[in-house]
Amino acid sequence: MSDLLRIAIVGFGEIACRQHVSAIAKTSGAALVAVVDPAKTPSGLPHFRDLTELLRDGPEIDAVALCTPPQVRHVQAAMALAAGKHVLLEKPPGATVSELTPLIAAAHEANRTLFATWHSRYAPAVGPARKLLAGRTISKVTIIWKEDVRVWHPGQTWIFEAGGFGVFDPGINALSILTEILPSQVFVKSAVLDFPANRETPIAAAIELSDANGLPIHAEFDFRQSGPPSWDILCETEAGPVMLSKGGRQLRDGNRLMVDATDEEYPALYRRFVALTSDGKSDVDLAPLRLAADSFMLGRRRFVEAFED
């Protein structure tokens, strides 16, 4: 295997174009050598219609970054691991929780890395927030995660199909931050999920969570917000409020601005991926996915007006 981690992106949609390509270019020890997509043909790179064609006819690769919709990711990951490739999974890592268990076993058996990425955990204010909250007593947490689906997921019809997560596709970013910054495990107590009459996944959700000590955590996700997005987590503590804003790029301790940085999440993800493959390790934390699944399991469905993109 080459000292350079040669990566193929599978699924060349918006997130791959906007984040993965530039992140790989910024990562020492990694190179993008091919793209798999049934429709898009990026210039300057070998292009293949599907993963089978890549593995059969493509250049030598060491890893695949699966940026396809979650409904098809399990089959692709299993195929790549069977071919001896490392696998990076965009979030959410799969359409179900149970499908990840055989992939973890397959990666171990093949001595390959499986990396279930939670990019929002790598936002610049998340680590400082975790350290700050470790010394505080938290009395309440409020999550507001709202955006315009037409702006952030244009033309992505799969997101409203079964297995596409709906508003939990961005909402799981908040859950990934929550499970990273709190010192104790949390669980879902109840949820209300708003399903458009013509869609198979929710467009909005209100979730009540807690930890073993009864910490009240309220989360609101909504795809119908116009204008700028709201990606905020407020933790009320005995020493005052701690606010994570802008999806984890900004941190305030009371009125004091502690972090206000640019988005470097994906370069950090790929540095982590290179390190994992070098060390022969995997990283598959399913906590955010379990919370999303439990919200669907416990959620009371409300049907709302039809949504047209």
Rank of each mutant, 00 (worst) to 15 (best):
residue 1 M to N: 10
residue 15 I to C: 07
residue 24 I to Y: 13
residue 25 A to H: 10
residue 30 A to V: 09
residue 33 V to C: 07
residue 36 V to N: 14
residue 40 K to W: 05
residue 40 K to Q: 12
residue 42 P to N: 03
residue 43 S to N: 13
residue 47 H to F: 07
residue 56 R to Y: 00
residue 57 D to H: 08
residue 72 V to C: 06
residue 72 V to T: 08
residue 102 P to Y: 04
residue 102 P to W: 05
residue 107 A to N: 12
residue 108 H to L: 10
residue 113 T to S: 09
residue 114 L to E: 03
residue 124 P to A: 05
residue 130 R to F: 03
residue 131 K to M: 00
residue 142 T to A: 11
residue 147 E to N: 13
residue 148 D to L: 02
residue 150 R to P: 10
residue 157 T to Q: 11
residue 157 T to R: 12
residue 158 W to S: 12
residue 160 F to V: 09
residue 168 F to A: 03
residue 169 D to K: 08
residue 170 P to M: 03
residue 173 N to E: 15
residue 174 A to P: 14
residue 181 I to S: 03
residue 204 A to K: 00
residue 207 I to V: 15
residue 209 L to Y: 11
residue 214 G to F: 09
residue 218 H to L: 12
residue 220 E to T: 15
residue 222 D to N: 10
residue 223 F to D: 15
residue 223 F to Y: 07
residue 225 Q to Y: 00
residue 227 G to I: 00
residue 228 P to I: 02
residue 230 S to F: 10
residue 235 C to L: 10
residue 235 C to F: 03
residue 243 M to G: 02
residue 246 K to G: 09
residue 256 R to N: 08
residue 258 M to H: 01
residue 259 V to G: 01
residue 262 T to K: 10
residue 265 E to N: 15
residue 268 A to Q: 15
residue 272 R to V: 08
residue 278 S to D: 13
residue 279 D to W: 04
residue 280 G to V: 14
residue 287 A to K: 13
residue 287 A to Y: 00
residue 288 P to W: 04
residue 292 A to V: 15
residue 292 A to N: 10
residue 295 S to P: 08
residue 299 G to K: 03
residue 300 R to C: 02
residue 301 R to Y: 02
residue 307 F to N: 01
